[in-house]
Simulated assay, not measured.
Amino acid sequence: MTGSNKIYPSAEAALDGVLQDGMLIAAGGFGLCGIPELLIEAILRAGTKELTIASNNCGVDGFGLGKLLDSRQICKMISSYVGENAEFMRQYLSGELELEFNPQGTLAERMRAGGAGIPGFYTKTGVGTVIAEGKEHHDFDGETYILERGIVADLSIVKGWKADESGNVIFRKTARNFNVPAAKCGRICVCEVEEIVPTGSLDPDAIHLPGIYVHRLVQGQHEKRIEQCTTRSRVSDTTGKKETV
């Protein structure tokens, strides 16, 4: 990288000098939708270990963040959903992996709060459940709330659809998911995208993540694996035979 240019030639180059053992990483994505798969692969190859990952879930077996579970590079997950990853469940139940469960909205708000410089907030979500254990309680207008801390990550890794050279990013449809709050809560944000265009060519009203939050950009090809592919049989109008769709 030269001067103020944010564009790097590869995911490995974009993470050079950033990764360190024991760091907290906020990762965008929801299931396998909008996950930073190139950056995850680069972390896998770098061998960075003892990682704490804040992410809605942990990919699936053998793909996405699931690769870092397989390689034992993750020691703790801060997540809201673990149902699609058998290795996640196995490591947690065997005591190999620490897990901090968060309700989905609470996790998103913790990231948003961290990015906005808000150290904590009160919420009713989780009151009276194991989520509330060990947390500060406070009454407001006769209702009990628990204190949740904002998340400030050492590194954010996110995946966008299109960015300009200044780092302004557009996410495509549901791939927006956790990517915006995850990007904002990192001290350093690295974003991978499908296309980089000249600065000024994006409609300002269409930008989801301003470039001020993005420190490094990388463009690449993505697998975009389908998490669950469901098919059914139907009768063809022309042949009368069943076809899979």
Rank of each mutant, 00 (worst) to 15 (best):
L44V: 12
V152L: 04
G28K: 03
L39T: 02
L147T: 07
R225T: 05
V82M: 13
L44R: 12
A116D: 12
E37L: 02
L217Y: 08
D164T: 09
R45Q: 14
R234T: 08
R112G: 00
D16G: 11
G186M: 01
M1W: 05
I226P: 06
K184S: 04
E136D: 13
F63Q: 00
E100W: 01
G128W: 00
R72E: 14
M89P: 00
F140Y: 14
T244L: 11
G160N: 08
Y213E: 10
V235E: 14
A27W: 01
T106D: 12
R234C: 05
L69Y: 04
E165C: 10
L19V: 02
G115D: 03
K67F: 04
D61S: 05
E84F: 09
E100M: 10
K242T: 06
G240T: 04
V127A: 05
N177P: 03
Y213R: 08
V193I: 10
D164C: 11
G220A: 12
L155Q: 05
I40V: 15
F101T: 09
K49N: 14
E133G: 01
G117Q: 01
G120T: 07
I226M: 12
N177S: 15
L202Y: 05
R216S: 07
E194P: 03
D21H: 10
K162Q: 15
P36W: 01
R149S: 12
I157H: 02
M77G: 08
G28D: 09
P204L: 14
G117L: 06
K67S: 07
V169M: 13
K184D: 01
R216Q: 12
G117E: 03
Y81P: 07
L32E: 05
D205H: 08
E192Y: 04
G83K: 11
D154V: 01
C191A: 15
F140I: 15
L147S: 08
E84Q: 14
A206I: 07
G150I: 02
V190D: 00
V18N: 05
C75L: 11
S236V: 03
W161Q: 13
G105S: 13
I78N: 00
K67H: 02
S80K: 05
I40L: 14
V197R: 09
K241L: 14
N85Y: 10
Q73M: 11
C191G: 09
V245T: 08
L24G: 06
G186L: 01
N5S: 15
V190P: 01
N85Q: 10
E100Q: 14
K184G: 02
W161L: 14
C33M: 13
R112L: 10
